[in-house]
Amino acid sequence: DHWHVHIDGERIRLDGASEEFIRTLEELIRRGTDARELKEIIKEYLR
């Protein structure tokens, strides 16, 4: 599956992301997590 998110107007691909990770991201977004912080979390995950 190819997922991607838009954060700060930037399109970030989440290739190979699990549904669990996507749900976690959605939860963080709902909580109002800062965009820079979200991008860091995604970069760490994709390593």
Rank of each mutant, 00 (worst) to 15 (best):
F21H: 01
I41G: 00
L46N: 07
S18D: 12
D34E: 10
T24H: 15
D15T: 12
E37G: 06
F21D: 02
W3S: 11
V5L: 06
I7A: 02
E40W: 07
D8A: 08
I7F: 03
I12W: 05
E37A: 13
E37W: 12
K39W: 11
I42M: 03
G9L: 02
L14C: 01
L46R: 03
E10G: 04
T33D: 03
R23N: 09
W3F: 11
D1I: 07
A17N: 04
L14K: 01
E44Q: 10
D15P: 14
R47P: 14
R11L: 15
K43Y: 14
A17K: 02
K39M: 12
E27M: 07
E37P: 02
G32K: 08
H2Q: 13
K39Y: 11
F21N: 01
K43S: 11
I41A: 08
G9K: 05
I12F: 07
Y45P: 01
L14I: 13
I7M: 06
L38N: 00
H4T: 04
T33G: 06
E19N: 11
I29A: 04
D1N: 15
I7L: 10
T33L: 09
H4D: 08
T33N: 04
R47V: 13
W3H: 12
E44L: 03
E37S: 14
E20P: 04
L14N: 01
D8I: 02
R23E: 08
Y45W: 11
L38S: 00
L46E: 10
E27V: 05
T24Q: 13
G16Q: 08
I12V: 11
H6Q: 10
D34N: 13
G9Q: 05
E10A: 05
E40H: 11
R36C: 08
A35H: 09
R13E: 15
G32M: 05
E26S: 08
G16L: 08
R36I: 13
V5E: 02
R30K: 12
E40T: 10
T24G: 11
E26F: 05
L25S: 00
T24A: 13
L38V: 09
D8G: 10
R36N: 14
K43G: 13
H6L: 12
S18P: 13
E40L: 11
F21L: 07
E10P: 02
T24W: 11
R13L: 13
E26Q: 11
E19D: 10
Y45Q: 12
D1F: 07
G16R: 10
L28F: 06
V5G: 06
G32W: 02
E19V: 11
S18M: 05
T33R: 06
L25P: 00
E20Y: 05
T24E: 12
L38I: 12
G32E: 04
R11C: 08
E10M: 06
L14Q: 00
K39E: 06
D1H: 11
